[in-house]
Design a binder for these strands. Structure first.
Length: 590
RNA sequence: GCCGACUUAGCUCAGUGGUAGAGCAAUGCUUUUGUAAAGCAUGGGUCGUCGGUUCAAGUCCGACAGUCGGCUCCA
């Protein structure tokens, strides 16, 4: 087993083989750049260089490109590193504007310019690229690779630049490793919440309603509500009181908060028949909560003042940014805001962090904490005074250090109004999702002129903490569908139990059991359709119901039920025993 | 929004210019069943929308909408 660096080199070399093959097949294109990544490699090229006819490459061409790549690999060409001067480099890549740009940058930074030859330098069938390396020694070391997808990508990732074509692929040391990776991709696809959500009848999208605007079925609405309640119970413990705020507000509100200037184009504008005044659907709750705070004069004794709000939010996301339940135009948050004195910030942060921990626990997901700081090279991107930012950031660090909370500080991830703590959850497939966030706001209370009277009778500006415990219930539902592959734990399952009478003469007993389940609030369905028992079991299994209660002559006679779990195991027990078992399991949220 | 692909029955999909198909689901009848699919029958589609080419369009061309893979963005 070779190390991770070797795999990286291998992928980097595979990427060189890819662009050699593409250049051989389509000589008119310009090669831009391409790195190895944690998953494989990609490579960007300009398929419509100025003055040349555009070529179209689609995934249907992958077979042909892969064939050409194998050709290059089978020749086992040596890959060699050479240092050259900037002048030589300019000459060597004279026709390629993208390479010229790299060379100029290297010149400015006084970097050594290196090139890699695949094959003997300057020989027929060889390829040269401007590249920092490193690479494996020869193309023959690439034993397994596959091209995966094709997409557009902006040069330097900037949407003002030209759109290039990007080919994604991956390479491994062996065919077995590659197959394993491809299998994992398939698994992830099977868990896709858009597919499962439809199959499990949790939500639907409609052309008539619009993109990013889901309709939740009774089952989906139930899961959404259960997640809200899960959070609500916990946040009440730390003093958050639920409020309700309007979905539409005047533009003035967002002008005051500062959102208008930055997010005007990402908000839904509402037209009124009776006034020319601008209105917007609200994209966040904080300005409303500031207004609520300002509705009375506040004493230092009242603080901290904590509001929570599950209100619907609307954001006019660009069509291409929408993604199942992960990115919506209509969604909600388990949002909350705390107005407090400076000496209360530590405790408030810690309280919320505690609740976040408790809220994530039942999902069996690991997570890490990101301290999101401003971009110290570009402090002008953020609102407010530099000194206040610096002291706020070190204050957050202090809180974490003092309480031995592990975190990773990341620059440039702060909100425009202040630094924050983000909780990044890791799902069953090892993928990371930002869910919770606790943010310190240095700006908004001042903009709304919020004050409180302190002990000496002086007016002071409170601090504001924005927080979301699990983020958005809708987004979380999508995440959890994938995390559990649709098989929800009992407390979250829309259908916890299905009762399956074997034949018609067992239906009456089934109805009695149904009544007992109803009495203790278990969510069940009774399948009294005239189908074979095997078929009913199959249907229930596919609906991922947690427990099936199968009733035949034996059970009815003994007053028992046959309990079939989702994993296929079965066990006979008395009805009251089953009720206890289910009650305990729901309460423990296991 | 940008680059590319896709859109046929409730779902999954076949159909390469000549009268729209399958499986599952649904409905009806028969069967009354022991741990993942009983049998037979029936209904269901202006082939995403609009326009064009053609004697003839699900099929070819264009526009628009939506979905998917990415890019950009995410208060």
């Amino acid at each position: 087993m070779k190390d991770k660096d070797y795999l990286y080199k291998l992928r980097h070399s595979a990427e060189h083989v890819l662009h050699q093959a593409v250049k051989e097949l389509y000589p008119s294109i310009h090669l831009a750049m391409g790195p190895a990544t944690d998953e494989g490699f990609y490579f960007d090229f300009d398929n419509s260089p100025e003055g040349k006819e555009a070529v179209t490459i689609t995934d249907a061409d992958f077979k042909n490109i892969e064939k050409r790549m194998w050709n290059i690999i089978n020749k086992n060409l040596p890959i060699t590193r050479h240092e050259i001067s900037a002048k030589e480099a300019h000459k060597l890549f004279a026709d390629n504007p993208y390479k010229q740009e790299w060379i100029e940058k290297a010149e400015v930074n006084k970097e050594v310019i290196t090139i890699y030859w695949t094959g003997e330098p300057n020989a027929q069938g060889s390829m040269v690229d401007l590249c920092a390396g490193p690479h494996v020694d020869s193309t023959g070391e690439i034993k397994a690779f596959k091209l995966l997808s094709i997409a557009g990508a902006y040069w330097h990732g900037d949407e003002k630049n030209k759109m290039l074509t990007r080919i994604y692929g991956t390479a491994f040391e062996s065919k077995e490793d590659l197959d394993k990776y491809l299998w994992q991709l398939e698994e992830a696809k099977k868990r896709d919440h858009r597919k499962l959500g439809k199959e499990m009848q949790l939500f639907v999208f409609s052309d008539l309603v619009g993109p990013g605007l889901p309709i939740y079925t009774p089952k989906g609405a139930l899961v959404r509500r259960l997640l809200q309640e899960h959070v609500n119970v916990l946040q009440k413990e730390i003093g958050y009181k639920e409020v309700w705020t309007p979905q539409v507000t005047k533009a003035d509100l967002f002008k005051t908060s500062g959102h208008y200037e930055k997010y005007k184009d990402d908000m839904f504008r509402v037209v009124s028949n009776y006034t020319d005044e601008e209105y917007f659907l609200k994209p966040m709750n904080c300005p409303n909560h500031c207004v609520l705070y300002a509705s009375q004069s506040r004493s230092y004794r009242e603080l901290p003042l904590r509001f929570s709000d599950f209100a619907n939010l609307y954001r006019d996301e660009k069509p291409g940014e929408l993604l199942g339940l992960s990115r919506l135009r209509a969604f909600s948050q388990d949002d909350g805001h705390c107005f407090c004195r400076e000496d209360q910030v530590d405790e408030e942060f810690l309280n919320v962090a505690q609740i976040v921990k408790k809220a994530i626990e039942p999902f069996n997901m690991k997570y890490w904490i990101r301290l999101s700081l401003w971009d110290s090279n570009h402090p002008e991107k953020y609102l407010g005074d530099k000194e206040i930012w610096k002291s706020a950031q070190s204050k957050l660090k202090d809180i974490l250090d003092k309480n031995n909370i592990e975190y990773t500080a990341v620059e440039g991830e702060a909100a425009i109004y202040g630094p924050k703590l983000d909780f990044i959850a890791i799902d069953a497939l090892g993928r990371e999702w930002q869910i919770s966030t606790i943010q310190l706001d240095l700006i908004m209370p001042g903009r709304f002129g919020l004050t409180y009277t302190d002990q000496e009778g002086k007016e002071k500006t409170p601090l504001m903490i924005h927080r979301a415990i699990l983020g958005s219930p809708e987004r979380l539902m999508g995440l959890l569908i994938e995390h559990y592959a649709g098989a929800f734990p009992l407390w979250l399952a829309p259908e916890q139990v299905r009762i399956i009478p074997i034949s018609e003469r067992h239906v009456e007993a089934a109805q009695n059991i149904a009544k007992s389940l109803e009495d203790i609030g278990v969510r069940f369905e009774l399948d009294d359709k005239a189908l074979s028992m095997q078929k009913k079991i199959r249907n229930a299994q596919q609906s991922k119901v947690n427990y099936m209660l199968i009733l035949g002559d034996v059970e009815v006679e003994k007053g028992e039920v046959n309990v079939r779990s989702r994993d296929g195991s079965t066990q006979n027990m008395s009805i009251s025993m089953f009720l206890d078992k289910v009650k305990n399991e729901i309460e423990s949220k296991k």
